[in-house]
């Protein structure tokens, strides 16, 4: 069985800075993999490489066995990849619903002429997309704010809007960058339940970057620890948390 995602020997430089150094990673279908490490370890950069936003210096990335390195980022969605961003990037003036509907882009058909003429298939497509978006908003507890401008929402909810947007594209592989970032502790429990539920419902494979160890322990099958652009170890959440080098890496960061 081919891995849903396979990263081999991936290196990334920015000028003289080595951000990723021969990182390897395999994510099997229907698993949840955690990606942890101190600030600046290169977790987000690795996501950006996978989603095509950064071009790695060397190495390879395969999604369901398809090499992706020469694909522009907008052609990753068709391989079933979707992602959220560490810093939510919503259109603050547009409604929550309109933000989420952007996720339906690849699920809708027809160019400008078809939409200008309101050809029947565009109308039915739009209706389906709105219905689907409504269900997702419901699912994520956002139904009440669907018509509010995204900018009027509390910061914690932005991540959920991003999640709904990513899910509307019906991905097979989902990259979540710090989904619990900025959430109060009580809401993390709820987020864990939500991610569990969507994972089963949509048959998702998920990679999660997260500093919240409770969430990582609760959700992930495997954990990859990244420190200064290198893979320090791979194992279960418990193994990772106990590993002396990880403890040191984290303490080192706090002390610095």
């Amino acid at each position: 069985m081919t891995s849903r995602l396979s990263v081999r020997d991936l290196s990334l430089h920015f000028g003289g800075i080595q951000v990723l150094d021969s990182v390897g990673l395999a994510v099997e279908p229907d698993t949840i993999v955690g990606l942890v490490g101190p600030n600046g370890a290169g977790k987000t950069s690795l996501f950006n490489c996978i989603s095509g936003h950064y071009r790695p210096t060397s190495g390879s990335i395969l999604v369901d066995g398809v090499p992706t390195l020469h694909r522009p980022p907008h052609r990753m969605a068709e391989l079933g990849l979707s992602r959220t961003f560490q810093h939510p990037a919503l259109q603050l003036d547009a409604s929550v619903l309109d933000n989420v509907l952007i996720g339906a882009h690849t699920r809708l058909r027809g160019g400008a002429l078809s939409w200008a003429l309101r050809l029947p298939f565009t109308i039915s497509g739009e209706r389906r997309a709105r219905q689907r978006a409504g269900e997702l908003l419901d699912h994520l507890g956002l139904a009440g704010v669907a018509d509010r401008p995204a900018g009027s929402l509390a910061h914690g909810l932005h991540k959920r809007v991003e999640l709904a947007r990513a899910l509307l594209s019906e991905p097979r592989l989902l990259l979540l960058d710090e989904p619990a970032g900025g959430l109060p502790h009580a809401e993390v429990e709820q987020l864990i339940e939500t991610i569990r539920a969507i994972r089963t419902e949509f048959g998702l494979t998920i990679v999660i970057v997260e500093h919240h160890m409770g969430l990582i322990s609760a959700l992930t099958d495997r954990v990859v620890v990244l420190v200064q652009g290198r893979k320090l170890l791979e194992g279960t959440a418990l193994e990772a948390q106990r590993h002396p080098l990880v403890v040191e890496a984290y303490l080192g960061r706090t002390a610095a």
């Binding site: 907008h74 882009h105 947007r165």
Partner: peptide
Amino acid sequence: AVVRTNEAVASAMGIS
């Protein structure tokens, strides 16, 4: 609208 506000999000959603 998403191309106007954020091209990275646009491409992540499959929009060139």
